[in-house]
């Protein structure tokens, strides 16, 4: 565990906590994409089947369990507990446009044609684009609550910090995984536009709104 991995994971945990707090405190999931959250639940479920096949550490197992559990808890909050506040009309990004290409790509570009490996590969590809329905929703409404923008900033920082972790591992441990790196770079790039607006608006105390 290096400092970048640690900060990346911390940022990921922070994102999840901010998301649940936003829903719970405002009693509303307005402005959140249920479809992105479905995608994240699929990402964690397919990636962490390795809980059953390879033990790494208590930290590792606990983190995986927390990510899986919190993703389903979030879905419960959006689709059941606070369903009345869910922005279904704006959350219209077709998930199959992400799921199908990611599944096909995982079948073609993978390290080994074996079930757990294919699920891992699929989850990496899907994670890289899972935020698109959320960004699409924001582009439709043209705005985001400040707390939602904090959530997105934490979530985007997480994969950005993982890139630094991969650079570190490449030099120090001579370890690299091209599938994780290329998907992680794409994932981080998708946030760049958001990062720019976040830094130029939210940090300065203004509301997050897309330029007219």
């Amino acid at each position: 565990m290096n400092i970048f991995r640690f900060l990346g994971d911390a940022s990921h945990f922070a994102a999840i906590i901010i998301l649940v707090l936003k829903i719970w405190k405002t009693r509303s999931c307005a402005g959140l994409s249920g479809r992105s959250q479905i995608a994240f639940a699929i990402v964690f479920t397919t990636r962490y089947v390795d809980l059953l096949t390879s033990y790494v550490s208590l930290y590792n197992s606990l983190a995986k369990i927390i990510f899986i559990f919190s993703s389903y808890a979030t879905l419960y909050l959006i689709y059941f507990r606070f369903k009345a506040t869910y922005d279904g009309n704006h959350d219209t990004f077709r998930l199959e446009f992400l799921l199908v290409p990611c599944a096909l790509l995982a079948l073609i570009v993978n390290h080994r044609f074996q079930v757990v490996e294919l699920l891992w590969t699929f989850s990496i590809y899907l994670e890289s684009v899972a935020i698109l329905p959320q960004l699409f929703l924001i582009s439709k409404t043209g705005e985001a609550e400040t707390i939602t923008s904090h959530y997105l900033f934490s979530l985007g920082s997480y994969r950005g910090l993982y890139i630094l972790n991969w650079i570190y591992r490449y030099y120090v441990q001579n370890y690299y995984d091209l599938i994780a790196i290329s998907a992680g770079v794409l994932q981080t790039l998708l946030y760049c536009d958001f990062f720019y607006l976040y830094i130029t608006r939210v940090i300065k105390g203004k509301a997050f709104a897309l330029p007219a």
């Binding site: 991995r5 994971d9 390879s54 790494v56 590792n60 080994r112 441990q173 995984d177 091209l178 994780a180």
Partner: peptide, 10 residues
């Protein structure tokens, strides 16, 4: 790739 290593990442 060394697949034991990647399971330590989240």
């Amino acid at each position: 790739s060394d697949s034991s290593k990647k399971h330590d990442e989240l």
